[in-house]
């Protein structure tokens, strides 16, 4: 059964442990500025929202890549950046309408969530259950994706 990240802003306290866990897993250092999941702050409502890639089916980033550097991990469904192929042209960063592929100046390549190969550290580190990794059918991701895709004209026509 395919699993996906379920993000529940209502449960997020803004503790940023997910950002620490993500950066530690990916870089071996605590560097939230390079975390692939980010917690956004809403001062006006006193709320927080964790957000990262939703691993779209027809992924804009993947299609826009001119050198086939973004491919799907068949085991997890994650869209993964292959560092040895990425030339750093950044076209995927403007193509992703959710803003979840970022260029990293230090590496000269782009980075995005790859679900940690099927065992995402952000979910494991979240103390309040705001980030969970569960059966894809239950996450509401489909609903989110459907909403987003409906609102984006260039998304019509999933083959």
């Amino acid at each position: 059964m395919q699993k996906s990240l379920h993000l529940d802003p209502a449960k997020c306290t803004g503790c940023l442990q997910c950002e620490l866990a993500c950066s530690y897993e990916k870089l071996g250092e605590f560097n939230p500025s390079r975390s692939l999941i980010r917690v956004f702050t809403f001062h006006f409502e006193g709320r927080f929202a964790p957000y990262t890639c939703t691993q779209c089916d027809e992924a804009w980033c993947q299609r826009a890549c001119p050198v086939d550097a973004i491919t799907m991990d068949l085991a997890t469904g994650a869209k993964v950046v292959n560092d040895d192929k990425c030339v750093g042209c950044k076209v995927c960063t403007i193509s992703c309408p959710f803003g979840t592929v970022n260029y990293v100046q230090e590496t000269g390549k782009v980075a995005k969530c790859d679900l940690c190969g099927g065992d995402p550290e952000c979910a494991k580190s979240c103390p309040t259950g705001a980030i969970t990794f569960i059966d894809a059918n239950l996450t509401g991701y489909e609903r989110m994706q459907a909403y987003a895709e409906k609102s984006l004209p260039s998304a019509e026509a999933s083959a």
Partner: peptide
Amino acid sequence: TQHIGVIRGLIESKTHLKDWKAH
């Protein structure tokens, strides 16, 4: 360089930002 694609998303989806325009 961060979250830049969301600009595309907002323009293409013609999302009404409501209060967020003022922000």
